[in-house]
Design a protein around this nucleic acid. Structure first.
Lengths: 139, 139
DNA sequence: CGTCTACCTTGACGCCTGTCGAAGCAGGGG
DNA sequence: CCCCTGCTTCGACAGGCGTCAAGGTAGACG
């Protein structure tokens, strides 16, 4: 298989929009596929913890070396999970010198969160930025 | 709070609490396992669409016969997906006469949503009901 | 009673995925 | 220059998961 399929664009913002609550109207097939991609990425304890570790780390970014120590898993496995999160558009990584630093994309989390709540009464969580801000996956 | 002798206990409320944002502090191993269980259930396009169909249906509940027609899938497959959603605590079903009606548990959706948003400044979305209201899985 | 409909369970099959060891690439120091 | 560390990719293996056909259960209706 061709290696980098960076090819995949997940237009989460385009398909889901900024605010289409799950309970308001039925998701289309395309919408559900896009959303499920993100949920599936978060559907693993290790990845969920990685996401949390990165998000809660000082400075908003974490080095892979910090993440690896937390788990009883091999390096390649951690790398694999980071790749999955990256391809889901949840995080992105940057190499600085010897180390690679990852940071989360809060907009994506906010969008996913907004889809789940029934109405979002006056919720500010719905749209911190604009939907355009959705990161293109770099994989 | 052992629930009924059901199979799985998902103490989502117990482990996750009502408001522990992902980005505030790292998830514990137990928390990530519980949360991942819910996300994994939502990590399939068909299940996500089922959830949306039920949630957005008039009266807050939907008959299985309505759901089956939407997909090009066999009855057993739909039944399987409904079971997964049920065991994740996202929906519950009730038999009335010949038909079985499913309805969603909005509290669970709200809790999951609350975990994702970074801060939730004044968000009321966090807790519509009380955590005790978390549905017991009937599996 | 029998039968028909609606829904669930079982068993089987193929793909997808999490995991590892080994090997490869990128930089920093000797 | 060579090596050493950090991270990723490759190849392989076991287990999980989505799907269906066939068979089972619950209730309605005659």
């Amino acid at each position: 298989m061709s290696k980098q399929g960076g090819t995949e664009e997940h237009a989460l913002a385009e398909v889901v929009g900024c605010c289409s609550p799950l309970a308001r109207e039925p998701l289309s097939a395309a919408q559900s596929v896009e959303l499920a991609r993100v949920f599936k990425a978060m559907g693993d304890p290790v990845r969920l913890r990685l996401l949390s570790l990165i998000a809660s780390h000082a400075g908003g970014e974490a080095c892979v070396c910090d993440l690896t120590d937390v788990f009883d898993l091999s390096g390649p496995t951690i790398s694999h999970h980071l790749k999955v999160l990256r391809e889901a558009g949840l995080i992105s990584g940057e190499r600085r010198g010897t180390w690679v630093y990852y940071r989360v994309h809060p907009d994506v989390l906010a969008q996913v969160s907004a889809v789940l709540v029934p109405a979002a009464p006056d919720s500010p969580a719905a749209m911190p930025g604009d939907r355009e801000a959705l990161p293109v996956v770099e994989a």
